[in-house]
Computed example of a mutant assay.
Amino acid sequence: MDLNADLGEGFGHWTLGDDRALLSIVTSANIACGYHAGDADTMRSVCAAAAEAGVAVGAHVGYLDLAGFGRRFIDVAPDTLTNEVLAQLGALSAFARAAGTRISYVKPHGALYNALFRHEAQADAVVDAVRLFDPALAVLGAPGAVWLKRASVAGLRVWHEAFADRAYTASGSLVPRGEPGAVLRDPAEIAARCVQLATEGWVRSVSGRPVRIVADSLCVHGDTANAVAIARAVRGALEGAGVAVGRVESPLLHTRAG
Rank of each mutant, 00 (worst) to 15 (best):
V206R: 04
D6P: 07
A94S: 11
A244P: 15
D124R: 15
A67F: 15
A21P: 01
E200M: 15
P210N: 03
Y35I: 09
A115I: 11
P143W: 13
G110T: 10
R166G: 04
T169E: 14
A5F: 06
Y105D: 03
S207K: 01
G172A: 07
K149C: 10
W147N: 06
G246H: 08
G54P: 05
C219R: 10
S24Q: 12
D41L: 14
R235S: 03
D75M: 13
A198I: 04
G181Y: 02
E189C: 04
G222V: 05
G172V: 05
W14Y: 13
L7D: 04
S45V: 14
A151R: 09
H36Q: 12
K149F: 13
G144A: 11
V55L: 04
F11T: 07
A91G: 06
I103D: 03
D134T: 00
A123G: 14
A227W: 01
D75L: 14
S104E: 10
M43Y: 04
A192W: 13
W202Y: 11
S205V: 00
V130L: 04
R71F: 10
V158W: 07
Y63T: 11
V214L: 15
F11H: 09
G155H: 02
E200P: 10
L23R: 02
R102E: 11
A215Y: 01
D75V: 12
A182R: 04
D134S: 00
F69Q: 05
L184P: 00
V153E: 10
V55M: 05
I230E: 01
R212C: 12
V46M: 05
V106K: 09
H221R: 01
R102S: 11
P176H: 07
P180M: 02
A215K: 03
G144N: 11
T255Q: 14
C47D: 06
G8M: 06
I190G: 02
C219A: 08
C219W: 09
S104M: 12
A29I: 06
R212W: 14
E239S: 09
P143M: 13
S250L: 05
A227C: 01
A154K: 00
D134M: 01
D75I: 12
D79R: 11
E161L: 13
A21S: 05
L197A: 02
T199R: 15
L238T: 06
V248T: 13
A67V: 15
G240I: 12
R185M: 07
A56R: 05
P251I: 01
R118M: 09
G172N: 07
F11Y: 12
V228P: 01
S24F: 08
V46C: 03
V76W: 11
